[in-house]
Computed example of a mutant assay.
Amino acid sequence: MHCGISKWSRPRAFTSARKYSGRYLCVTFLSGVLAPAGIRVKRYSQETVQRHVPGQFVCYHLPHRTLFKIQGQDTSPFLQGIITNDMGLLEVPGFSAMYSHMLNVQGRTLYDIMLYSLKETDAGQGVFLECDSAIKDSILRHLKMYKLRRKVNINPCPELSVWAVLSKKKNAGHEASKPELSSPDKVLVWETDPRTQEMGWRLVLESQIDPLDIIALCQKGDTEEYHRHRYAIGLPEGVKDLPPGVALPLESNLAYMQGISFSKGCYIGQELTARTHHTGVVRKRLMPVRFSAPVQGLEEGAALQTQSGKPAGKHRAGVGELGLSLIRMAHAKEVLTLKSSDDTTLALEASVPDWWPKDVKIN
């Protein structure tokens, strides 16, 4: 297929064309935000203003995510050839965070990553790369393998910690207000999660810094609640949800998470992904599922069936009664079954996430 760089675009949602440096960029904006389920707050009077109520935001420490600093004059062209998204987006004013996948040559996902532009105070061009902690050694080898003679330095950042910040308030149809920082100089990354507004904000700090000293009206939450929120809205993250060399990017809803450019030119694994996109046929998708009761010890890839015994997909991962499964779209509206490791038959139902485009066809 022809590989060329054309005008940039972002997949799905609402698009606005703006002119930068003599060319037009199609910049995608998401609308429609549902924050996590709110916690009731006692009303002391009818005049109580929500923003003055303590604990309006929740900070979740994410020890399962780690960071690399990639820095040097070749940072952008180096990453451009090995990720699904377009590094040019980080040069657009107002865009400092980007979601992407790295694929193998067969077009299957190896790693899900987030990239954050370094602050201007950092010397030279560069980014922070966030990835699953479990594959940090593997991704480092992957980066070094494709580095060749590029002028880039790649360094792990074990001294940094990644946090997710979510709003307790539900603001249907409106973007949640970004929390104010009391000490922005101590913050290395403070960006809206690029995958969907329902995931709040990403915060990177030095490990000894307490986010409660940085963000007003914030309280700490349990990391498992962060995962419950992800599974409830159907958003995959890390190797359990996206098994390396197994998951396909479009079946994993990469386009819906603003993680792929279909116009940037060549990158590793592009051919199959581009062909699938242009056929417009994705027969299976990763979807949020809810079991009839909390479950434990499900095997990765456990087979799903319809009530009549037809193959309906495979289970990926979850917590409690929530999870993610790769569902055949032809059976997405049916009650499905799965056999657990102790041979118990479990019932589950899939749902369509609110953050998906409204024109997604479910049979």
Rank of each mutant, 00 (worst) to 15 (best):
S76I: 05
P63N: 01
K69T: 05
Y44G: 13
A97T: 06
Y44E: 09
R40C: 12
F95C: 12
N85Y: 00
G94L: 11
F68G: 01
L79C: 02
G72S: 04
M98R: 02
L30H: 15
Y24E: 15
L89Y: 07
L79P: 00
L79W: 02
P93N: 05
Q80V: 00
T75W: 03
L62S: 07
L62W: 02
F68N: 01
L25Y: 15
F68E: 00
V41M: 05
R23H: 14
T84C: 14
Q50Y: 08
G22Y: 14
V92Q: 09
M98Q: 15
G72I: 05
G38T: 09
V27I: 15
L67Q: 04
R23W: 13
V33P: 02
L62H: 06
E91M: 13
S45L: 05
T28E: 14
R43L: 14
H61C: 11
Q73D: 12
P93V: 05
L90A: 01
C26T: 13
H52Y: 09
L89M: 12
C26D: 15
G72H: 02
T75H: 02
E91S: 14
D74E: 04
F57I: 03
A35V: 03
E91T: 10
N85A: 02
M98S: 09
L79Q: 00
P63Y: 04
H61D: 10
T66S: 12
Q46F: 13
K69H: 07
P77G: 10
P54F: 07
F29S: 13
N85Q: 10
D86F: 02
P54S: 06
L25I: 15
P63W: 01
D86R: 03
S76T: 04
D86I: 01
R23C: 13
H64S: 12
L90S: 04
Y44A: 12
P63D: 00
Q50S: 08
S45C: 06
K42G: 11
V27F: 10
Y60H: 03
Q50E: 11
V58H: 01
I70P: 00
I39N: 10
D74L: 09
I82P: 00
D74W: 03
F95V: 14
T28R: 15
D74H: 14
L67E: 04
M87A: 01
A35L: 04
Y44M: 09
G94H: 11
Y24P: 04
R43G: 07
K69Y: 06
C59G: 06
Y44N: 12
N85D: 05
H52Q: 10
S21N: 15
V53K: 06
V49A: 12
P93H: 09
Q46C: 08
